[in-house]
Amino acid sequence: MELRGHGLAAEMPPGWEGAISLESSAGSVALAEVGGSLRPVAHLATFPLPSDRGDFGSGAVELMRTEDVFVALLEYDPAEAGTELFARRGLPRRLDPRLFSPAALQRGQRGQAGFQEFFTQAGRAFCLYVVLGDADDAHLQVRRVERVLAGVRIEEL
């Protein structure tokens, strides 16, 4: 099953689903109304994604079971591409389970662990944000995340 939209695409392994929408924060929407543009947000998950969810997965991560994982890929202003925060080149496709921590969660949920990395690819600036349903099972769950990341493509716009 493939997901494609807004210059992003993902071939999803069995058990995964996803959505690619435009950012929904109030600030971004307000900026878009005065001439700015909304940037895409991709959500990939091993559980049913609710329609109401924040860009970093609020509203969705609360529904995760311990065996679930959640991935968000958020684009930032292209002017940020290559800057210090986004200095890393390319989407990280191999992740270190030791870097996952409850402190990295945008929305703290008991037992979960998070990770985020900023990077530049195809002249576009992104943040990869990952939530594991079970911090104690990070090694196994990270392998699942890597499997879906292997099928993610970022196209030049």
Binding site: G5, M12, G15, W16, E17, A19, S21, L22, P48, L49
Partner: peptide
């Protein structure tokens, strides 16, 4: 309906 791409399992 808002133009988002969706793939539901």
């Amino acid at each position: 309906p808002r133009g988002e791409a969706i793939a539901a399992r």
